[in-house]
Amino acid sequence: MLTIGRNALTKTETAMVAAVEGAVPRLVKAREAVAVFQSMIWEKHAAATESTFLFGDMF
């Protein structure tokens, strides 16, 4: 739907596509933050509890 039928989308579908495309950068940052957090937990780093270290200015 995002590529082939883009010219034939309804108004609702167009709004949904725009919302998904707009959220992608934040979703990527969130995924990266979770990956960092999980690696800290798996490696039992003391810094895992420091949210400013983990998330910084991501959100």
Score class of each variant (00 low, 15 high):
residue 43 E to M: 06
residue 48 A to C: 11
residue 37 F to W: 09
residue 51 S to H: 08
residue 22 G to E: 07
residue 47 A to S: 14
residue 43 E to H: 06
residue 57 D to F: 00
residue 33 A to Q: 03
residue 35 A to T: 10
residue 35 A to Q: 14
residue 51 S to R: 10
residue 21 E to M: 08
residue 46 A to G: 06
residue 7 N to T: 12
residue 22 G to L: 04
residue 22 G to F: 03
residue 55 F to Q: 01
residue 37 F to I: 09
residue 31 R to I: 12
residue 34 V to C: 03
residue 12 T to E: 10
residue 34 V to K: 09
residue 54 L to F: 00
residue 30 A to C: 10
residue 36 V to A: 14
residue 46 A to T: 09
residue 51 S to V: 04
residue 20 V to N: 02
residue 48 A to H: 07
residue 21 E to A: 08
residue 37 F to N: 02
residue 18 A to D: 15
residue 19 A to S: 14
residue 35 A to N: 13
residue 17 V to Y: 11
residue 16 M to I: 15
residue 8 A to D: 14
residue 30 A to S: 13
residue 57 D to Y: 01
residue 32 E to A: 01
residue 19 A to G: 06
residue 37 F to K: 04
residue 3 T to I: 12
residue 52 T to L: 02
residue 14 T to H: 07
residue 41 I to M: 10
residue 44 K to V: 03
residue 8 A to G: 09
residue 13 E to Y: 07
residue 34 V to E: 04
residue 53 F to A: 05
residue 59 F to G: 00
residue 36 V to I: 12
residue 14 T to V: 09
residue 56 G to D: 01
residue 50 E to H: 07
residue 45 H to E: 13
residue 30 A to D: 09
residue 24 V to A: 15
residue 4 I to P: 07
residue 33 A to C: 10
residue 9 L to Y: 09
residue 56 G to P: 01
residue 43 E to K: 08
residue 7 N to M: 14
residue 40 M to E: 04
residue 49 T to I: 11
residue 20 V to L: 03
residue 59 F to Q: 02
residue 26 R to G: 02
residue 15 A to T: 08
residue 4 I to W: 10
residue 50 E to S: 09
residue 11 K to T: 11
residue 27 L to P: 03
residue 47 A to K: 11
residue 25 P to N: 04
residue 36 V to D: 12
residue 5 G to I: 10
residue 39 S to V: 01
residue 56 G to V: 00
residue 29 K to F: 01
residue 13 E to L: 11
residue 58 M to F: 01
residue 30 A to K: 08
residue 23 A to D: 13
residue 1 M to L: 15
residue 40 M to F: 05
residue 42 W to E: 11
residue 28 V to G: 05
residue 28 V to S: 08
residue 42 W to F: 08
residue 41 I to N: 07
residue 14 T to I: 08
residue 22 G to V: 03
residue 41 I to D: 07
residue 23 A to N: 13
residue 38 Q to Y: 06
residue 14 T to S: 12
residue 55 F to V: 00
residue 12 T to P: 02
residue 59 F to N: 01
residue 42 W to A: 10
residue 38 Q to A: 04
residue 34 V to S: 05
residue 30 A to V: 07
residue 27 L to E: 06
residue 39 S to P: 01
residue 15 A to M: 10
residue 54 L to V: 00
residue 4 I to H: 13
residue 15 A to Q: 11
residue 23 A to T: 04
residue 52 T to A: 04
residue 50 E to C: 06
residue 3 T to M: 14
residue 8 A to W: 10
residue 27 L to S: 08
